[in-house]
Design a protein around this nucleic acid. Structure first.
Lengths: 175, 175
DNA sequence: AGGCTTTCGCTACGAGCCGTAGCGTAACTG
DNA sequence: CAGTTACGCTACGGCTCGTAGCGAAAGCCT
C-alpha cells in the first residue's frame, strides 16, 4: 500500500498516496481501520509453498513471514494496531477477522497436505481439529513475531530449521 | 506501579503517582523509558513453580504469564513499547536488557530442573545451549502473547495443557 | 446540452498529548 | 543559617488526529 512509512501519520499517508487527508477520513473511520486494512493486504501475500514435506513447508512459510516482518512498514503497522487493540474491543475484532482468521488458511492447507502425505493423522473431531489449528497458528506466528520484534534477533534459516524441527516433532509425536 | 492506566498519558501517570509531570521527565528521558521500566518491574513478578515435572512447570509459568497479560496495564504498556521499538533502536536494546534477557532466567531454571530430573539431556556445547534457550523462550512467550493479544482468545488451562504437551513432547523427542 | 449528485481537494480549525523553560518553594546538609 | 538539591506549577511550542466548510471536477440522467 505504501512504501516508506517513515512515520505512521495520516498526513504522510495522504501525501504518499497522492490524495488529501480528508479523503482518507471519507473512506476509513479512522487511523486504526486504515492500518488494519493495509496490514491485511500485506499478509495476503503469504503463501504456503509445496515443498514435499511438512517440515519444508513450515520452514518455508516461517521464512516468508519473517521476510514480511522485516519490512519496516509491516512491523510498525502491525504492532501499532495490536497495541491499540488492547484498548479497543472493536479494533480487536477487526484484526481477528481481517488478519488472524484469514491467515489460518495456511495452517489448514499445511495440515491437509501433511495428512495426505501420511505425516500427520486425520482428526475426526471437528472441535478438536479447530483447537489444534488455533494452537499451531499461535505457536508459529507468535514465535516468529516474538523472535523478530521482541527479542530483536534475526529469523534466519538456522533459527527456522531449529524451530520447525521442534514444532513438527511435537506435532508428529503428540498425534 | 499504577493501577488504572485508563490512558497511557504522562499527565495521567503523573497525577496517579501524585507527582508533577516535570518530575517524571527529570527521572526518565521520555515516555518510552518510563514504560519499559514499569513493564520490567511487572515481569519480575514471574516465578517458575517447582511442581515436580517439566510439563507441570511449563504449564504453571504459562498460566502465570497469561494472568500477567490479562491485566490491562500490562498488555497495553507492553505492546505500546514494542510497537515503538520498531522505529527506535535504542528502545529495542533497552527492552532486550530490561525484559527479554531478564526473563530468560525462567527457561534456564526450568531446563536445569528438567535435566536434574532426567527429563532432558545435558547440552555440552554452550552456544548450542544458548540457541536452544532463546528458541524456547521465543516459542513460549510468543505463543502466549499471540494467543492472548492477537488472536484475542483466552489462555485457559485447556490451552495451556495443549501447548505444553506440544512443546515438551518436541523438546523431549528432539534432544 | 444542461442540471444533479457524488466525490475529491484544500484550508482552517479545535482538541489532546509530548516534552521543555522558567520560576518559586520546600527539604536536606554541613 | 547559607547552599544545594529536588520538587511543584504554569505556560508554552510542536505535532498529530479528526472535523467543518467551501469550491471544483467528474460522472449520470433526461
Amino acid at each position: 500500500m505504501d512504501l516508506g512509512w517513515s512515520k505512521l501519520t495520516m498526513g504522510d499517508v495522504a501525501t504518499r498516496a497522492g490524495v488529501a487527508k480528508t479523503t482518507l477520513y471519507r473512506r476509513w473511520a479512522g487511523k486504526n481501520e486504515l492500518v488494519v486494512d493495509a496490514v491485511a493486504v500485506l499478509f495476503d501475500e503469504l503463501e504456503l509453498p509445496d515443498l514435499g514435506s511438512l517440515m519444508a513447508d513450515v520452514e518455508g512459510v516461517v521464512l516468508q513471514f519473517a521476510a514480511l516482518l522485516e519490512r519496516p512498514e509491516t512491523k510498525t503497522a502491525l504492532m501499532a494496531v495490536v497495541a491499540e487493540s488492547t484498548r479497543d474491543d472493536a479494533l480487536r475484532g477487526r484484526i481477528r477477522s481481517a488478519i488472524v482468521d484469514r491467515q489460518k488458511r495456511l495452517v489448514l492447507v499445511g495440515r491437509e497436505r501433511a495428512q495426505a502425505r501420511g505425516e500427520l493423522p486425520y482428526e475426526p473431531d471437528p472441535t478438536a481439529s479447530a483447537r489444534h489449528t488455533d494452537l499451531i497458528f499461535d505457536v508459529v506466528a507468535g514465535a516468529v513475531v516474538h523472535r523478530a520484534l521482541v527479542s530483536a534477533e534475526p529469523v534466519d534459516e538456522a533459527w527456522a530449521r531449529d524451530f520447525t524441527l521442534l514444532i513438527c516433532t511435537g506435532l508428529a509425536a503428540t498425534a
